[in-house]
Amino acid sequence: ASIEGERIIPITEFFKGPRQTALKPSEILVEVAIPSKPQPPWRHAYYKLGRRRGHEISVTSIAIAASIDAGVFQDIRIALGSMAPTPVRARSVEVFLKGRKVSESVIEEAVEKLSSDVKPISDVRASAEYRLHVSKALLKDMLLKLVKGGGE
């Protein structure tokens, strides 16, 4: 919003690059609209990995929302932060998992698809190789916990 009025920006267009958003110099962010909280069988989890406790800048972060019913991934959303100049979705992982029966082998195969969704950056916090390695490990661990009923 600004003195000129309000506008709605889809999240996919909001982040432009490191420390860059679609906000104009005269605007402030007044609201983040999130669809209603998913109900069961939706489960969700978030993990932020940093170099030390309390450090605000993460090495990587992962958010997952999954609808799992009758042992099948009905739907899933996976987003990663601090991997690239802007947040990214793991769309090929999502497409692969949707409609598949939950199993450790399916999850392991899905995790390997993460490489095609993200092209990690190297910076002072971590190398690209480390970011990808740890993101795969976290994704696998988080998915296994979600299917066992973990998460919120």
Rank of each mutant, 00 (worst) to 15 (best):
A1W: 04
E4Q: 14
E4P: 00
E4I: 12
E6V: 15
I9N: 07
I9G: 01
P10T: 11
I11W: 12
T12W: 01
T12P: 00
F14Q: 04
G17I: 00
R19K: 13
T21I: 10
T21R: 03
A22L: 09
A22D: 13
K24F: 14
K24N: 12
P25Y: 11
S26Q: 11
E27W: 01
L29V: 12
L29P: 08
E31T: 07
V32T: 02
A33W: 12
P35V: 08
K37A: 06
K37I: 05
K37V: 14
Q39I: 09
P40D: 11
R43M: 07
H44Y: 09
A45K: 14
Y46F: 15
Y46Q: 07
K48A: 06
L49P: 00
L49H: 13
G50H: 03
G50L: 07
G50A: 14
G50E: 05
R52L: 04
R53Q: 10
R53E: 07
H55L: 14
I57T: 03
I57Q: 03
S58D: 12
V59L: 10
V59F: 00
T60Y: 00
I62M: 04
A63V: 14
I64P: 06
I64K: 04
A65D: 13
A65S: 10
A65Q: 12
A66Q: 08
D69V: 10
A70H: 11
V72I: 14
V72L: 08
Q74E: 11
Q74R: 15
Q74K: 15
Q74N: 09
D75M: 06
I76H: 08
A79N: 10
G81N: 03
S82C: 08
S82H: 13
M83I: 12
M83W: 05
A84E: 14
A84V: 12
A84G: 12
T86P: 02
P87G: 10
V88D: 02
V88R: 15
V88F: 03
R89S: 06
A90D: 00
R91D: 12
S92C: 01
S92P: 05
V93Y: 05
V93R: 01
V95W: 05
V95P: 00
K98N: 03
G99M: 06
R100A: 07
K101I: 11
V102G: 04
S103H: 05
S103N: 04
S103G: 08
E104P: 02
I107S: 03
E108P: 06
E108D: 15
A110Q: 03
A110C: 10
E112N: 13
E112R: 15
E112D: 15
E112W: 09
L114T: 09
L114Q: 09
S116C: 09
S116Q: 08
V118E: 00
V118P: 08
V118H: 05
K119M: 12
P120R: 02
I121E: 02
S122A: 11
D123K: 05
V124F: 14
V124Y: 10
R125W: 09
R125M: 06
A126H: 06
A126R: 03
S127K: 11
A128I: 01
E129I: 09
L132A: 05
L132W: 08
V134Y: 07
S135M: 00
A137C: 09
L138A: 12
L139T: 04
K140A: 10
K140T: 02
D141Y: 14
D141V: 11
M142R: 04
L143R: 06
L143E: 02
L144H: 00
L144W: 07
K145C: 01
L146Y: 02
L146G: 04
V147N: 05
V147L: 05
G150K: 04
E152R: 15
